[in-house]
């Protein structure tokens, strides 16, 4: 087992639906496997989730490790950690990836602790490369570079796990590109019988309310985002109206979310969602590095700010120094005029 460089991706599913981040990770795993020569395995846990195995294969898994058990129907830390840890310890894959969601960030640390391996949280990029360790005085080939923002987003750290296997990481949603499924792909489905102990069942889920997100920021070709400069609810209404006229989604900086103008699922940036739309309009956003890192790859960026020295202008293609309460109505009427 030690010579094979297999990459496992934990498949997060809820009510028969695989989380986007898991499919994004399958695409990334395929790319990494290209340079490592290992197999991409989907780790699919749940109950009666057989039909999801084919979805995982279509998205890049060469093998599906299907762990089916009635106690795995709803996600709970202990039975999931038991099932995943046992398999990880038994097979010691080279790399094991999880989405950095409320499930992935609950499960991965528990598994890493039990398997006594390193884990890096919230990665925004993964690469393969060599590492010359001063600590161990040794050259390690083909390690997983786990790249993540740290220190409030002011630095980007590259972390490695030279000695322990698997090399584990959680990865942010939306930073890896989702590839379209290829239904002609074939893969092996391997069924695993988990051993769940009574002590793993001390926690019960009494109720659960998960709403389907109505926000599609990540996939929207146009995003109009507001920040602290949108100093009242009326300003934010203008931002919504502009988004509506453009057929885009509304985004926000952390400042706007913290001020209560808009819900957290609209937040763009390192602690929110990473977007790369065709057009990004930043209105009243100063452009803290945490925000810019989540949108600077957008195709065209228009920034509107009263402060001519706002950092957002450094990444903007079009710079409008002015009050959004005046500029946005002009934009809206110019766009409506065009549409006639």
């Amino acid at each position: 087992m030690t010579d094979t460089k297999n990459i496992w991706v934990f498949i997060e599913q809820d009510e028969g639906q695989i989380a986007d981040v898991s499919l994004e990770l399958l695409a990334k795993a395929q790319e990494l496997a290209g340079s490592l020569g290992g197999e991409v395995c989907a780790l699919l846990c749940g109950h009666d989730v057989d039909e999801l195995a084919q979805t995982a294969i279509s998205h890049g898994a060469g093998r599906v490790l299907l762990i089916d058990h009635p106690e795995l129907a709803l996600y709970r830390s202990l039975p999931y950690a038991r099932a995943v840890t046992d398999l990880v310890r038994d097979r010691r894959p080279y790399i094991c990836l999880f989405g950095a969601t409320s499930v992935g960030r609950d499960l991965a640390p528990r598994v890493a602790s039990a398997a006594r391996v390193g884990l890096t949280a919230d990665c925004t990029d993964l690469q393969i490369g060599d590492y010359n360790s001063k600590k161990d005085k040794q050259l390690y080939k083909d390690l997983l570079y786990q790249i993540r923002p740290a220190f409030g987003g002011n630095i980007i750290a590259t972390i490695v796990n030279p000695r322990t296997r698997p090399q584990m990481a959680t990865v942010r949603e939306g930073v890896m590109r989702l590839q379209p499924p290829d239904d002609t792909r074939e893969g092996v489905i391997e069924r695993i019988e988990p051993v769940i102990e009574d002590q793993d069942l001390v926690l019960q889920v009494l109720s659960r309310q998960v709403r389907q997100s109505t926000v599609h920021l990540k996939d929207s070709p146009i995003v109009v985002a507001g920040g602290a400069g949108a100093s009242c609810k009326e300003d934010f209404e203008l931002i919504r109206e502009l988004a509506h006229v453009l057929g885009g989604e509304v985004g926000a900086s952390r400042a706007a979310v913290d001020a209560g103008f808009i819900s957290p699922e609209h937040q763009v940036g390192q602690t929110g969602i990473t977007v790369r739309p065709r057009l990004y309009i930043a209105a009243g956003i100063s452009g803290a590095i945490q925000h810019r890192a989540g949108m600077d790859q957008s195709n065209k960026i228009i920034a509107i700010n009263t402060d001519p020295n706002a950092p957002i202008f450094q990444v903007a293609h079009y710079k409008i120094v002015g009050d959004l309460a005046e500029v946005i109505p002009l934009l809206i009427s110019a766009l409506r005029e065009k549409a006639k």
């Binding site: 006594r116 390193g118 570079y145 923002p149 972390i159 030279p162 202008f313 450094q314 990444v315």
Partner: peptide, 18 residues
């Protein structure tokens, strides 16, 4: 088990904006 391989300070590309 984790080691820091390197640290980069975040420098985003600066554009010539119109």
């Amino acid at each position: 088990p984790t080691q820091v391989y390197k640290i980069n300070f975040v420098v985003l590309e600066t554009r010539d904006s119109k």
